[in-house]
């Protein structure tokens, strides 16, 4: 499979990364280079193989569950300290609803 300029544009929109039209041809070429290379995986017979999710090695549970309870909170100032823009105890963004 390979991608064209329209597909790259669509992916960039999904990823919320602005991409200038002038930069598209180069990006198309680079992504196709990577995609052509990973095509190699098609030759592997994976019929009936359970996909590996998570990174735990054999014998370890991949995700530990815990009680669903509040473990942290009441630190609004610490959370807002790095905000690029804020209004009082809120993150500020451009107007969303007209």
């Amino acid at each position: 499979m390979s991608v064209d300029a329209a597909t790259v544009k669509r992916i960039a929109t999904l990823a919320r990364i602005r991409i200038e039209d002038a930069a598209l041809p180069r990006m198309v070429e680079e992504l196709n280079g990577i995609l052509a290379w990973v095509e190699m995986l098609r030759e592997v017979d994976t019929q009936g193989v359970e996909p590996m999710a998570g990174g735990a090695p054999t014998g370890q549970p991949s995700l530990r569950m815990r009680e669903d309870e509040v473990t942290d909170g009441g630190i609004a100032e610490a959370i807002l300290a790095n905000a690029p823009d804020r209004e009082g105890p809120y993150f500020a963004v451009p107007k969303v609803v007209e």
Binding site: V38, V44, T46, V49, E50, P51, M52
Partner: peptide, 11 residues
Amino acid sequence: LKAQQVRALIR
């Protein structure tokens, strides 16, 4: 999904 399956084979 294919990559996750090959990852299982590598493991």
